[in-house]
Design a protein around this nucleic acid. Structure first.
Length: 545
RNA sequence: GGUGCGGUGGCGAAGUGGCUAACGCCGCGGUCUGCAAAACCGCUAUGCGUCGGUUCAAAUCCGACCCGCACCUCCA
C-alpha cells in the first residue's frame, strides 16, 4: 500500500514518492508572531502535525520544519501600539505559540527557524537572484522580476494576463511589473534593520520561507504545506524565488488545508468573530478542539461554532469511554483465574476486530489523510469492542488479557499517537474518571458514598440510594450500576468545598435519623478527619455556640 | 471580470461508476436495570442543489443552470 496525497500543483491525488526512500522532509508555513494564534492558525497546525505523526507511524523518518515570521510590518505596528520592543514582542508570542500548540497536542517541529536569525542566508539568496537576473534594485528595495520566471502562476493556475484582467493591484512606480514583489525592503526610521549590499533594510515577506526551507531541507524537498489562502501569492512567490535560485524543483508536493469559518462567515477582525485558540481552550477541552478539527477532511471548509463543538463532544466521549472500558476490564481480570471462557471466544473476536480496524484506519489515512474516515474506523471498533465485552462479561478470565491489551494498544497508537485526540499534553478540563485532580481525598469520600449507597440498594432502600446518587450527580459524579458493582466517573473538577459540606450534612442527618449505622458513620468520620475536618469537634462547637 | 472550492438525512460528515449511501450527534422503539446511567440492538435520505445527457449501471462521468464560499490586496 502506498500513500496518496492531493498535490495542489497537479490538482490531483498522487502517490507519495519521497526524494529519499524512507525519509520525508516537510515544511509548513508558521505564524507571524504578533498575537496569540487564532483558530485559523490552529487548523494547519493540528492537521500537519497529524500528517507528520501518521508518516512516522508508517515508518518514515520525518524531518519537520515550521518557521516563525518574526520580522514583519504587522509585528512592527503591533509593537508600536503596545509600546514594546519589536524583538521582545515577537519573542513573547513565540513563547505563547508553543503553549497553545502544546495544548492542542501539536508536537514541536524538528526546526523552528526564525527570520531574524537567517538574515545572512536571505541576503545570499537575494544576491544570487540579482546575479542571475531574476531580481532588480529600485530605490533601495530589491524586487523579484516576475516576468523573468516563465512558469509564474503554475501553482495557483493563473497566467499573468488573467491576473492583470481583474487587477486590483496598485501600480507602484518602483516596480517594473505590478505583481513584482519585494525581496528586500529599505527600512524607515525606527524600524528593525540589517545591513545589506543594498543598504539598511529587512527581508520581504516571501523570501524567508524559500530560504529557510532550502537551508534545512535542501532543494526538491517532499511536502510543503499551509493554508489555502497562501497558494497565491505567498507560495507562488516562494516557488518563483526558490526555483529561480535553485534552477530546479523547489518542493515535490504542495498541500493546502481549507478555511475555517465561524458561524458560516469568514473569520475576520472586522466581523468581530475572530477566535483566539487561547479563548476557546478556556471553554472547551483541547482534545475536543483537536478532535473537531480532524473530524472534517482537511481540504473541506470547516465551520466553527459553539453548538457544533458541543455536539461533537459526545462522540469523543464515546471513544474515551470505550477505551476506558477496555483498561478497566483488563485490570479487573488481573486477579481473575476463571471461569474459563466457555467457548465465548472474546479474544479471537477482539483480535480480528483490531486487525480490521487497523486496516480501515490505514486505508483512510493513506488516501490523502482522510482523518474523518479514519476516526470513523475507531467508532466502528468502539461499538464492536463494547458489544463483545458486554456480551462476554462473566465469561472472561486472565487468558483474555493479551487480547484486551492489543485492543488498548489500538486506541493508544491510533487515538493517542497518531490522531492525538484521546490524550493531550495539557489536560485541563478533560474528563477524569476514578481520580479527581489534586485531592485523592475527595475520591475517598465519593468511594465511601458509593459504598453506602450499595448497602442501601442491597437493603432495597431505594429512596435513600437515589438521594445519594442525586447528591453526587449534582457535583458531576455520575454512577453506573453494573453486575460487577457500581462504577463512577466524575466530570471536570469538583467544587470540593461545597461538595464536602453537603456530603457531611447528608451523613449527619442520616446518622441522626438512623439511616446509616454507627459503623458507617465512624468510617465516614475518620475519612473526613484525614482531610483535616473533625466532625465530632465541629458538632461540639456547634452545640456550645 | 478571472481562478478555485463546495451544495449528501433534523444537524455534522464520509463516499468520485455497480453490494442495503459509512460514521458521529439528535429523535423514536427495544434489551439490560429496583429506577437510572452506560452499553448494545433496531428504526429514521427510493434519494445525494436543479434540469438534461452518456452508460446495462451515476451521488460519483459530461453539459447547462441555480445557490453558497474563498482567492485575485495583509491573512492559516
Amino acid at each position: 500500500m502506498s500513500i496518496k496525497l492531493y498535490n495542489t500543483m497537479k490538482r490531483e491525488k498522487e502517490k507519495l514518492e519521497p526524494r529519499v526512500p524512507g525519509r520525508i522532509s516537510m515544511y509548513v508555513c508558521g505564524p507571524t508572531t504578533y498575537n496569540f494564534i487564532h483558530l485559523g492558525n490552529a487548523r494547519p497546525l493540528v492537521f500537519f502535525d497529524t500528517v507528520r505523526r501518521y508518516l512516522e507511524y508508517r515508518g518514515f523518518d520525518v524531518t519537520y520544519v515550521q518557521n516563525f515570521t518574526d520580522v514583519d510590518d504587522k509585528i512592527i505596528n503591533r509593537a508600536r501600539e503596545e509600546g514594546m520592543d519589536v524583538r521582545a514582542l515577537a519573542e513573547l508570542y513565540i513563547d505563547e505559540y508553543f503553549r497553545d500548540a502544546a495544548s492542542l497536542g501539536v508536537r514541536k517541529a524538528d526546526f523552528h527557524p526564525r527570520v531574524s536569525e537567517h538574515i545572512e542566508d536571505i541576503i545570499k539568496v537575494i544576491s544570487v537572484l540579482i546575479e542571475k537576473g531574476f531580481a532588480y534594485t529600485s530605490c533601495g528595495d530589491v524586487y523579484f522580476d516576475i516576468r523573468s520566471f516563465k512558469s509564474y502562476g503554475k501553482l495557483s493556475g493563473r497566467t499573468l494576463d488573467e491576473m492583470r484582467a481583474g487587477a486590483r493591484v496598485q501600480i507602484d512606480p518602483r516596480k517594473k511589473h505590478p505583481l513584482d514583489f519585494v525581496l528586500w525592503k529599505a527600512s524607515k526610521e525606527g524600524e528593525p534593520r540589517w545591513d545589506s549590499p543594498w543598504g539598511y533594510g529587512r527581508p520581504g515577506w516571501h523570501i524567508e520561507c524559500s530560504t529557510m526551507s532550502i537551508k534545512y531541507l535542501g532543494p526538491n524537498f517532499d511536502i510543503h504545506g499551509g493554508g489555502m489562502d497562501l497558494i497565491f501569492p505567498h507560495h507562488e512567490n516562494e516557488i518563483a524565488q526558490a526555483e529561480a535560485f535553485l534552477g530546479g524543483t523547489f518542493a515535490r508536493y504542495w498541500m493546502h488545508n481549507g478555511f475555517i469559518t465561524v458561524n458560516e462567515e469568514k473569520m475576520s477582525k472586522s466581523l468581530g468573530n475572530f477566535f483566539l485558540v487561547r479563548d476557546i481552550l478556556r471553554r472547551y477541552p483541547p482534545d475536543l478542539v483537536r478532535y473537531y478539527l480532524l473530524s472534517t477532511h482537511y481540504r473541506s471548509p470547516l465551520d466553527f461554532n459553539d453548538k457544533k463543538l458541543k455536539d461533537s463532544s459526545k462522540g469523543l466521549e464515546r471513544l474515551k469511554k470505550s477505551y476506558r472500558l477496555l483498561q478497566k476490564t483488563r485490570e479487573r481480570l488481573k486477579s481473575n483465574k476463571g471461569p474459563y471462557r466457555n467457548g465465548q471466544g472474546l479474544s479471537e473476536k477482539l483480535l480480528n476486530c483490531v486487525e480490521r480496524t487497523k486496516k480501515k484506519f490505514e486505508e483512510a489515512m493513506d488516501d490523502d489523510f482522510n482523518t474523518a474516515l479514519a476516526i470513523s474506523s475507531l467508532f466502528d471498533f468502539c461499538r464492536e469492542s463494547n458489544a463483545e465485552i458486554n456480551r462476554s462479561e462473566g465469561f472472561l478470565s486472565c487468558e483474555d488479557i493479551p487480547a484486551l491489551k492489543e485492543a488498548e494498544k489500538l486506541f493508544k497508537v491510533i487515538g493517542e499517537d497518531v490522531l492525538g485526540i484521546l490524550k493531550t499534553e495539557d489536560a485541563q478540563g478533560v474528563i477524569i474518571e476514578g481520580e479527581i485532580a489534586e485531592t485523592t481525598n475527595v475520591e475517598t469520600l465519593i468511594q465511601l458514598a458509593v459504598e453506602v449507597r450499595e448497602i442501601f440498594r442491597k437493603e432495597k432502600r431505594y429512596g435513600s440510594a437515589d438521594r445519594l446518587r442525586n447528591l453526587l450527580k449534582k457535583y458531576g459524579v455520575v454512577l453506573q450500576d453494573t453486575p460487577q458493582g457500581t462504577r463512577w466517573e466524575s466530570k471536570t473538577c469538583i467544587d470540593t468545598e461545597n461538595f464536602m459540606e453537603e456530603l457531611i450534612s447528608y451523613f449527619q442527618k442520616a446518622r441522626r435519623s438512623r439511616e446509616i449505622s454507627e459503623t458507617i458513620w465512624e468510617k465516614f468520620n475518620s475519612a473526613v478527619k484525614k482531610m483535616g475536618n473533625d466532625l465530632e469537634e465541629n458538632a461540639v462547637e456547634q452545640r456550645e455556640s
